[in-house]
Amino acid sequence: MLEVKDLHVTVEDKVILKGLNLTINAGEVHAIMGPNGAGKSTLSAVIAGKDGYEVTQGTILFEGQDVLEMEIEERARAGLLLGFQYPIEIPGVKNIYLLKAALNAQRAARGEGEIPAPEFMKLVREKSTDMKMDPSFLQRAVNEGFSGGEKKRNEILQMLILQPKLAMLDEIDSGLDIDAMKVVADGVNSLRNADRAILLVTHYQRLLNHIVPDHVHVLVDGRIVKSGGKDLALELEERGYDWVLEESVA
């Protein structure tokens, strides 16, 4: 589904990704871990299409399409969605408006008409209940005045409504209390199926207890230096990153 090959990325003349390879197949959950500043958010942002990153080498293919040739919104409509580490506030734009505009954009790209209001209403009601979000959040401006945890739940609400093929979730667990973690994890797990894939960026095993990954990768200094199964995360939790580094240098 997603194939990242030899990806080199520079931000403001600083080399961040240095030949990164990653393949994700439909049905899989991948977790990327690694020290602060390693380039995890950069990787997901480049895949999602954020401005300001220069790809100096390498390719990204999503279902065989050249992602780097696609506009940001085309990537999203094709089913590539990024849940942000720091979701921003958008004053004056109602949550419900964003959801409807986004969903209709996706439907239009598939050649479908706008979603009928009652159907949309039902969908939004259902999904916000799943995320334990009061309906009043729908009427508020996107993320404005939301707590850290509410912002994260709102990101997942968008995912539940837009049903991406590949959901990339950047530190979706940060700032969540224990109950919210469960709600978010349940939301993410509900997206899992044989046709979809999930890419999690996280620092903590805790999240991976709830969303059990098929593959765990360690990203250090712009490269994936080690990959393994779910047990690798446990080992990292116990031993930190130094041993991985030593092993990779050796």
Binding site: G49, K50, E71, L81, P87, G92, A101, A105, L162
Partner: peptide, 21 residues
């Protein structure tokens, strides 16, 4: 960017933000 990243095209994103203003 945040709006486009959800599939909303750029003119629409700008329109929404202008209306928000």
């Amino acid at each position: 960017y945040a709006l486009r990243s959800r599939g909303i095209d750029e003119p629409m994103a700008r329109a929404l933000l202008t209306l928000a203003f």
